[in-house]
Design a protein around this nucleic acid. Sequence first.
RNA 1: UGGGGUGUAGCCAAGCGGUAAGGCACGGGGCUUUGACUCCCGCAUGCGCAGGUCCGAAUCCUGCCACCCCAGCCA
Length: 552
Amino acid sequence: MADLTTNEGERLNFIEEIVDEFVKNGGGPVVTRFPPEPNGYLHIGHAKALCIDFGIAEKFGGKCNLRYDDTNPAKEDEEFVDAIEYDIKWLGFEYAAKLFGSDYFDTCYELAEKLIKKGVAFVCDLSKEEIREYRGTLTEPGRNSPYRDRSVEENLDLFRRMRAGEFPDGSRTLRAKIDMASPNTNMRDPALYRILHMPHHQTGDKWCIYPMYDFAHPIQDALEGVTHSLCSLEYEIHRPLYDWVVEQCAFEPRPRQIEFARLNLARTVMSKRYLRSLVESGTVSGWDDPRMPTLCGLRRRGYTAAAIKDFLNRAGVAKADSVSDPAMLEHCLREDLNPTAPRMSAVIDPIKVTLTNWPEGKVEKLVFENLPGDESRGSREVLFGRTLFIEREDFMEDPPKKFFRLKPGGEVRLKNAYIVKCESAVKDEAGNIIELLCTYDPETKSGENQRKVKGTLHYVCEAEAASAEFRLYDYLLLPDDDPETKDLDFAQRANPDSIVIKRGFVERALKEAKIGESFQFLRTGYFCKDADSTPELPVFNRTVGLKDSYKG
RNA sequence: UGGGGUGUAGCCAAGCGGUAAGGCACGGGGCUUUGACUCCCGCAUGCGCAGGUCCGAAUCCUGCCACCCCAGCCA
């Protein structure tokens, strides 16, 4: 009988191996969950967790739930709920159910009473500071709370009154009775419930006590039938507590927590605190600034869901702390965009070219394939005439050896048009080159002549040109090894050139492009039309440049 | 100094006692009306270090080193 779980020969990551064994041992349907806290926007690090949670479910024929981890109303907000769902769907994942941790508050409460009755939880009157003092340190054991031995009746009474709102915030907690001498400080009678007189975005003012993550999460998992609760490495130390809760609540079957290393990207900071500071300080235009590692930022930049997922899959899943190279993400992006993005012409930093032997007023129509190699994408007409614009960097007055572009006396082909020769450069009083005077060879029209020249340039003809704004992005952070700034904190390592705005020209047709549409601008890179575009001035974000093997 | 983890190439990452996969990056070459794409070729006598077991060790054993996480009424 065919193996229904995994393809033969396919290498499984360590989590998949565990799940595979689970399934082969008759463990039943696989259930996972993606548990974001609705307190911010999803970023590419969350996308890794998303890929793992949904990927495992899909690979083993199971399901994955979206469950908001909303046990702390002080930090969360409804506004993030919709944004999170939008991003998940954009990535192409479909959750079996949309749930809130707060859906289980009643059950959590009942289980808390159950633990009190079992004598493994107690109401503690110690203040935050006192609890810290009693907890001990990494090397010294803690001391039992003086309230640890209250009777079940007293604990029950106190807990019910906590729920009834009789006590102020911070005055009491419900704590697990585990082991104040445990070398794992998470096991030193951790808090299970705290008092918080604060309305919750889902449950309103029904509650004034809220369960802690460590108590609520395993309960939520078990109640949903989650078989594998996948999370990042920092929760490894919480696993004994997770298992303790499952054990004490007597859940069967037991969900299993497995931890993996979170995604890190070089020159990219993913912490919510840092991203928030970038937004609030105005360093970036918002959470969806194209320089942000948030999914909305990457999307606006022109990154595709397919490329992000491909990158995450290639980066792999393991337990070793690692820092991935953004070059791999960019590779995946180009690979995704290359076969689909229409080729268009755009000149980002223009310099005027006049073809002195081209008849004044004459305009010729050229034919450009929209996507060479894919005839189904059709072609379009592009105008060509006496006045053109090329990239300033495509001309050098005194070029090095292997400069295949324009130079005095040199020839290049203008893409899909003619071979032109640079006769002279016109300068202003300051010596800046302001125009190139060239001649064209009428015998060299594309497709009609075999004469070859080494370089081919892109251009936009004046008759064709529409003004456009180009936004060129770079990392928000300076390199780690920059001697000037390497020891500074993130806030002081901001890259002043993380955005460079240019004004140039594009083919007229691009004015009609839709917001978010991606193109490859010939010889320069992949760009996507930004929402800031107006009918008069289209704006293009550089998603990623083309690879460039020219060593100037 | 306690406990929990992790160390394989510049960056990820396979490897599960039988003689170091793959991807990215990088270098060289072919093709090219995008210096793109694509196609060839190269890239760890070596697996944190030191011993040991074994015919044979990245895989097993011992010791050491480095890095990450934990002392929230955050998640």
